[in-house]
Every structure is written in structure tokens, then in C-alpha cells.
Amino acid sequence: MDFTEEQLLRYSRHILLPEVGGKGQSKINAARVLMIGAGGLGSPVGYYLAAAGVGKIGIVDDDKVELSNLQRQIAHSMDTLGSYKADSAKATFEALNPDVNVTPIKKRINRDNIFDIMKDYDIVVDGSDNFPTRYLINDACVIEGKPLSSGAILRFEGQVTTIVPGKGHCYRCLFEDPPPPGLVPSCQEAGVVGALPGIIGGFQAMEVLKLILGKGEPLINRLLIYDALKTQFRTVKVRRNPQCPVCGENPSITELPDYTQDVCSI
């Protein structure tokens, strides 16, 4: 692609990098990324992907902005209290970079609509806040063969991993089934420190850019765990499970199951 003079200025620090250059920047500008969740994780992921020039970003979220979100969900503001998070995030990201086209999808994602929503995108970002959605996204990405950046945060701890179907593990290789409702507390019950999603979301945005560029070593077959209180990172090796119910050799999940479970949204 030919860059305008404005784009040369905007993306100059990318173009200077041997790993990116004009060709890599063109790949970023042509990329189509679907973010599920415009909350704590979705805010920084979307911010950095928009800044980088990702051409098409879809944001799935049916929640509205509340005051209790603003301690960590930096895409929103006092001005957008009460409006849909997907609309609020679209306005923020497009104000940062007019090259970016953001599609707000004000729906709750479920097994009946996920394939239709995903079909226009190449990479998926999980910034959801509950286990049924996390497993739904994983299973749908494995079945469709779409790369997925998965992040999770609670209290002072965060986790991030990258799932490329066919190349490594999936979320069910790590944890085969969702925990029973009530076992793992939600952010609403247990709290989450405000800067934490910035760190984990930053990793997710970085992983997405690497997937777009085809450079480096994404977190395939690895789970990164961050302990904010101790300021410690651990990277745990994960192996693809040949008996995995969705990505294994004889998968039992070939259609999306019923994920409904009592979840309180955050």
C-alpha cells in the first residue's frame, strides 16, 4: 500500500523497525481483529491496536458504561457513562486514529451468533469476564481455526496465552472444563487492581501484532502468569492434549455445546 504523508508520520516508528517496515505496516492496516469485551482488557488492547493502525476492529459488548468501570476501563469516560461500551470504545479509538474502522456489536455473544460475528475477522481477542464465554470463544476459534489471544485478570494476578489452532494448545488443553459456578470469584466479588488490565491487555495487543506480522514467538504452548504484588512473571509450558475434547485427535465437541451457567456480569 502507498502511505499518505500523514501515515508516514503516524507509523514512522513502526516503519523504522526491521521486523515491521512498510510491508509489515501494510499488514497491520489490512488486519481485521475481533475483540470480545470492551472492558478492562478490551480497553488497552483496542487502544494499542487502534494506535498501531489495525484497519478493522470489531467490538462485541452489550454492557453500558458504569462509574465502577472507570477505575480500570480506560476506553470510557465520564462523558460516556450510560452509553454502550462498544460505542464508547469506538469513539475513543477512532478519535485516536481515523485510519481505523471500528464496528460496535452490541450483543451478548452466544453459540448461535458467534460464528456469524467471527466470520469477518482474522484474529480474536478474548477480553471477557466469565468462564462460559471464555470456553465458547475457545471452542469456536478451534472449530473455525482462528488465532485467539486470551487474557484474564483477577485481584492482583493476570494470565495471558495465545492459541493458534493446529499449532499448539487450546484453552481446554489447559483447563478441560469451566470451574463450577461460584468456585472462582468474579472481579465484582473479589476486586481487581486498576493497572493490571493495562499490563495483561498490553501483552495481548503485542501478541496480536506479532500474529499479524508473522514475527517472533507468540505464547503458543505457553501460559504467562503475572503476580503484580510480587512483580513476578512466570511462563508455564503447556502441551497440546491429544485427548482434548475440542482440539484433540477425536474431539467430542464438534458443535458448540450449551454454555449457559449462572454468571453475574461485571
Binding site: 508516514l8 508520520l9 514512522s12 523504522l16 517496515g21 512498510g22
Partner: peptide, 14 residues
């Protein structure tokens, strides 16, 4: 600089 190099780099990439 750095636009001198950016222009040169884009040219050589092609």
C-alpha cells in the same frame, strides 16, 4: 531524519 531513512527504506523494500 528520520524521514530520509523511512523514504529510503520504503523504496528498497519494493
Amino acid at each position: 531524519c528520520p524521514y530520509t531513512f523511512i523514504k529510503a527504506k520504503l523504496a528498497i523494500e519494493s
